[in-house]
Design a protein around this nucleic acid. Structure first.
Lengths: 112, 112
DNA sequence: CGTCCCTATATAGCAACGCTACCTATGGAG
DNA sequence: CTCCATAGGTAGCGTTGCTATATAGGGACG
């Protein structure tokens, strides 16, 4: 998977990962990797800043806890986040169908 | 369609538009708009620099002509461009299926 | 005991990308 | 004569995800 392919679609994936219930950052990364059969394996330097961004935007809310001596920041979807997730799903559908149509097109308008 | 959604996928669309035959820049933009029912309507400030980039990369080759008093730069796929288009199609498939799977998932691994 | 790996979080700096805003220019419609 | 569609172009910007690096606890292995 090309590195920059994700641009603009990461937020939706993170929100989706939190839809079923709160997770901490590392668990989000792992969940995403598992659900996509390893196709989306985000570096931690991508996950954490993105989660911070989503929290600043009010789409998720985080809280610290300590489990087994390790500190964790667990995130949960906010109401706004749930709404945003719906929007991400819609816009992904629209985007994906458009790109698929364009890439698949055999006959293009001969506008030249 | 969110503005930044295209990031990393534009090249494939432009290459695909040229697959059926050479087009000039403005025609590429129009063809893309028509084939996607207006869902992908690129600003010219996106199209032209992208075509220059593809030309520099050797994926398309351009040539000037004059039609009706207006100068045009017509682009054609190179062999490398045709190969690249195949790669773009493959990586799009992989990417799209991964994102769709993640966004659709109802039950996420409870790795927390 | 030392080393390594997995878990867990974080940040600085970078490069790429597409967009906005602007500019030039021709030809046709009103 | 003005406006719009066509046709091409660039400078500068903001966002975004990645790389590289740092910290730290716990467990496995020798």
């Amino acid at each position: 998977m090309r590195a920059e392919a994700l641009k603009g679609h990461l937020d939706g994936l993170l929100l989706a990962a939190l839809e079923a219930g709160p997770l901490h950052g590392y668990a989000v990364k792992e969940a995403l990797r598992e659900i996509t059969d390893g196709r989306i394996d985000l570096p931690t330097g991508t996950v954490y800043p993105a989660l911070h961004r989503l929290e600043r935007a009010g789409l998720i809310s985080g809280s610290w806890s300590v489990v087994g001596g390790r500190r964790r920041r667990t995130y949960a979807l906010t109401a706004a986040g749930r709404t945003a997730l719906g929007g991400e799903r819609d816009s992904w559908q629209e985007f994906a169908s458009a790109v698929t149509a364009a890439l698949r097109a055999r006959s293009w308008p001969a506008t030249s």
